[in-house]
Nucleic acid binder design. Structure first.
Length: 605
RNA sequence: GCGGAAGUAGCUCAGUUGGUUAGAGCGCCGCCCUGUCACGGCGGAGGUCGCGGGUUCGAGCCCCGUCUUUCGCGCCA
């Protein structure tokens, strides 16, 4: 036998190998000991193979001692399983290996986390014993999918003419945006590097340097609190930038890349080919979110006029008191039952809202004597219907295109205060009524983000998203328009309710950039100081350029059909931004601190 | 920083109105079993009920505090 550990892997042997000898190595996945005959499932990266031993085998005594997750080398004969004992569910299920010699390569202590099975286990144990967790079939497959997705993206980007560049990890702190991770400089006492939040300025400099089409699977670092769809500390982006492009050309370049990616990895799901472009303001009104889930067909509408001056005093009063108050309607097709409307109302109250107004429609019941004589073929039910009267109800029903069996929910107030709640209600209605197509990937571009927004905290105009993006209308808009009405060439791509990419056409004109910052109260001198490298670069011939960055982790999360990034990340940190496996962050040694000229000033306790 | 949820055996969980010695499955240890693939059978070990305090004759259960994990808000150009 010339191979020290294996002639075949554990997913390889088939009926055609029956009669030959083999050597396999792997983990003991499962033991089934029948006394006289004993089965092992031996597992490696490639699959599972059943190994069998009986008292006639010289390996029997060793096999009897094996336990889960020991690492073994098995020599034996490949043979067909006995008629009737084949396992059709296993690729190797027609054969088994009759063990003639077994060597224990490594033993395993009692497991804190079973590898076998598909239960959920506590996050802290999974993370502390991540190497065991990663042996488990589901997450092992997720990680491999991630690797294939990254490889696919890299190949595609190369194929369509992009060049991959690595940009520095140790860089300068950028005063805008997220909290930086700082790295102390040993050579320059008291000075710090920052880890990049994104390669934003570097990729723009690459455009100024004439490289035309850049991409990078780039690590990004942000010291902000995490979410289920936002990793603490570090994450990866497919970062890209192009010179001499318009927003439309960027969409035309990247839309096929993403659709092809999802079509390659969609499994049994479907990918919607149509990628609508939805203005940011329209997304908020129709979907109550700037990252709408378009698998949900519900579109909201304003129905303020039907409530103004109506007999439903709560809404009518709000409208009369404040011209900015609107009433939005959330149609709920097939939701026309008292039980469903009550359930939604309870949900709203649990969310801290006073309730969720509704009307639901049923087929007319002419026999019912106290039914108002509306002349319509439906009955409208619920307190609101009674209060506003049949004519207003009918107008609402017509505007929304509702039928009997349908319901409609109402939220009222200033849209900026309630749009998120309305969007959540839309999501719940879509799920509860099974309107949301769970087995689909539905994309959209969200465009025309506001360039500026009002900061309540600072009582001033501030950048909405990216200060480097180009205001629509350029310098003229900055000089002449109310800043809060200016749109940016700034866009997101969304999929199934997740923001999967964000980007913009950049502002490559130093004069426009200075003006844009001036409106937020930042002087020219400050711009030159904070963004010195880029500001200088733009003095020497900057091409018009733009780009975007896709969240690789989120793409993989969607593709794998999980709702937590830890399921698709090799060694994630926990929510407190700790690596429980490696024990990071940890204490520096006194020598390290001395060399870095750092003295700790820790809080009490 | 704020709010919700969870924390009982190595793991997943049950535990009634506050009442005898805190249970089950998996795993572990021992014995039995020649065709299983979540093998089966018998027996055993294994517990600071997250931690601290309080109420009570009596607390896994009630109260207060605290820690850990998680989800969300703030935050994330």
């Amino acid at each position: 036998m010339t191979h020290a550990y294996r002639t075949h892997n554990c997913g390889q042997l088939r009926a055609e190998h029956a009669g030959s000898t083999t050597r396999i190595s792997g983990w003991v996945h499962r033991v089934r000991d029948h006394g006289g005959v004993l089965f092992l499932d031996v597992r490696d990266h490639y699959g599972l193979t059943q190994v069998v031993a009986d008292p006639a085998s010289p390996a029997f005594k060793v096999v009897e001692t094996l336990r889960s997750e020991w690492v073994v080398r098995i020599d034996g004969q490949v043979r067909n399983r006995l008629a009737g004992t084949e396992n059709k569910d296993m690729p190797t299920g027609l054969i088994e290996v009759y063990a003639t010699e077994v060597e224990v390569l490594s033993q395993a202590a009692e497991l804190p986390l079973p590898v076998f099975g598909d239960l959920d286990y506590p996050e802290d144990i999974r993370l502390k014993y991540r190497f065991l967790d990663l042996r488990r079939e589901k997450i092992h497959n997720n990680i491999m999918t991630r690797t294939k997705v990254v490889s696919h993206l890299r190949n595609t980007m190369n194929d369509i003419g992009f060049s991959e560049f690595s940009t520095p990890i140790l860089t300068a702190s950028s005063p805008e945006g997220a909290r930086d991770f700082l790295v102390p400089s040993r050579i320059h006492a008291g000075k710090f590097f920052a880890l990049p939040q994104a390669p934003q300025q570097y990729k723009q400099l690459l455009m100024v340097a004439g490289f035309d089409k850049y991409f990078q699977i780039a690590p990004c670092f942000r010291d902000e609190d995490p979410r289920a769809d936002r990793l603490p500390g570090e994450f990866y982006q497919l970062d890209l930038e192009m010179s001499f492009v318009t927003q439309d050309e960027l969409f035309a370049t990247m839309e096929p890349v993403i659709l092809e990616l999802f079509n390659t990895f969609k499994g049994d799901k479907t990918v919607r080919a149509d990628v609508p472009r939805i203005p940011h303001s329209e997304a908020l009104c129709k979907y109550g979110s700037d990252k709408p889930d378009l698998r949900n067909p519900i579109e909201m509408q304003a129905v303020t006029e039907h409530f103004a001056g109506s007999g439903f005093k709560v809404f009518a009063g709000m409208i009369a008191a404040d011209p900015k108050v609107e009433v939005w309607a959330i149609p709920a097709p097939k939701g026309g039952s008292r039980a469903f409307c009550d359930r939604m109302n309870s949900w709203a109250q649990k969310e801290g809202q006073p309730g969720l107004g509704y009307i639901y429609f049923t087929p007319a019941e002419p026999s019912q004597e106290d039914r108002p004589a509306t002349g319509h073929d439906y009955d409208a039910k619920g307190p609101i219907a009674k209060n506003i009267g049949p004519e207003r109800v009918h107008a609402i029903k017509n505007q929304l295109g509702l039928k009997y069996d349908d319901a409609v929910f109402f939220v009222a107030g200033r849209p900026e205060k309630f749009y998120r709640f309305a969007g959540d209600a839309r999501t719940i209605v879509g799920k509860e009524l099974a309107l949301t197509k769970e087995n689909e990937f539905a994309f959209a571009w969200i465009v025309d983000f506001p360039f500026y927004e009002w900061s309540d905290e600072d009582k001033k105009v501030d950048f909405g998203h990216n200060p480097f993006s180009m205001p629509q209308g350029g310098m003229k808009a900055l000089q002449e328009q109310d800043p809060l009405t200016i749109k940016a060439f700034q866009y997101d791509m969304v999929c199934n309710g997740y923001e999967i990419a964000s980007g913009s056409i950049r502002n490559h004109s130093p004069e426009t950039m200075v003006k844009a910052f001036e409106i937020t109260g930042v002087t020219k001198a400050e711009v030159e100081e904070r963004f010195g490298g880029m500001y200088r670069a733009f003095q020497f011939g900057a091409p018009p350029h733009g780009g975007m960055a896709f969240g690789v982790d989120r793409l993989v999360m969607l593709i794998c059909g999980v709702n937590n990034l830890r399921e698709i990340t090799l060694f994630p940190m926990n929510q407190q931004a700790q690596d429980l496996l490696m024990g990071a962050p940890n204490d520096p040694t006194p020598k390290q601190l001395r060399e870095l000229h750092i003295r700790l000033n820790l809080p009490e306790n």
